[in-house]
Design a protein around this nucleic acid. Structure first.
Lengths: 146, 146
DNA sequence: TACTATTACATAGCATACAATGCAATGTTA
DNA sequence: TAACATTGCATTGTATGCTATGTAATAGTA
């Protein structure tokens, strides 16, 4: 029996995800952020002052992962956590001046990473690839719920 | 300005990679192995007794990552490291009876993970998706070398 | 042969992911 | 309202990835 890594979707997807993370890491290093902070920053740039729970609802990661990431972001001066006006368990999360200031550069870095990755594909192929991946995500998420 | 996570290749690829790892993790848990050990196992099932360097040549990961993974595999009773016959720096890596015994089940688990993930795509679409990802990997690896 | 460079691997430190669990605050119900 | 359940978040432990660095052995060279 054989199992070929090069035709295993899981193997390839893991590999390409690490290449993306690496590419993004290098481009955003000058901004003082790291790839794991990107999803939270995207959400907070769109809407500041969310609670952890509200952020979680948007960010396909586990609560513990987000809590730890937020702690590092606070340490790095990207966010501050303030007490929630009506629920003492919760805290609202606010971007600092520093985090607000790097938004445009961070968008460019992410777009540039994607652009380089897909550089030798046609527009149609790029669209098809994204559509395929979204379908796989949908399939796997439905599976998980069972 | 906006940046849509749902149309960012990097974001989607990161997400789908985590879903694959999760799916595989659940299926191979009964075998006593974890996803990170899979690539090394695949290589050793094909050819036992490789050195770390020889394994590295096959496994798109860094040397330090492999060294740590091998240490956990030894701890878990999957491999033993023996002294190299002619080079005292190197060690050859050998699968245990336990690791040899789960080969077929592990193949099935990985194939099943891939099958479920691609369940709602046609054969042609699956082939195209794999081809696309391989092209992206090639592009990004060439980029890294610059 | 003595020095130096290279090689093979290990280790340390960190980021990012997860599951499991703890804890205080809030909600619900008898 | 006291007891219990739920919620929001933090903490702990582990896996997996990376970079940087250490160490011992080997290879190459003056």
């Amino acid at each position: 029996m054989k199992f070929d890594r090069m035709t295993s979707a899981g193997y390839l997807v893991n590999h390409v995800a690490r290449l993306f993370a690496d590419g993004l890491r290098k481009r955003i290093a000058p901004l003082g952020i790291v790839p794991g902070q990107f999803p939270a920053l995207l959400a907070l740039w769109e809407k500041d002052g969310l609670t952890q729970k509200e952020l979680l609802a948007v960010l396909d990661i586990e609560q513990a992962t987000l809590a730890n990431t937020l702690t590092r972001m606070e340490r790095d001066g990207l966010i501050v956590r303030k007490e929630h006006p009506s629920d003492a368990r919760a805290r609202t999360i606010h971007l600092t001046e520093k985090a607000r200031g790097i938004r445009a550069d961070a968008y460019r870095a992410a777009a540039e990473t994607n652009r380089c990755a897909l550089a030798d594909m046609t527009e149609d192929e790029q669209d098809l690839l994204l559509e395929f991946i979204q379908r796989v995500i949908d399939t796997m998420q439905k599976d998980k719920e069972q």
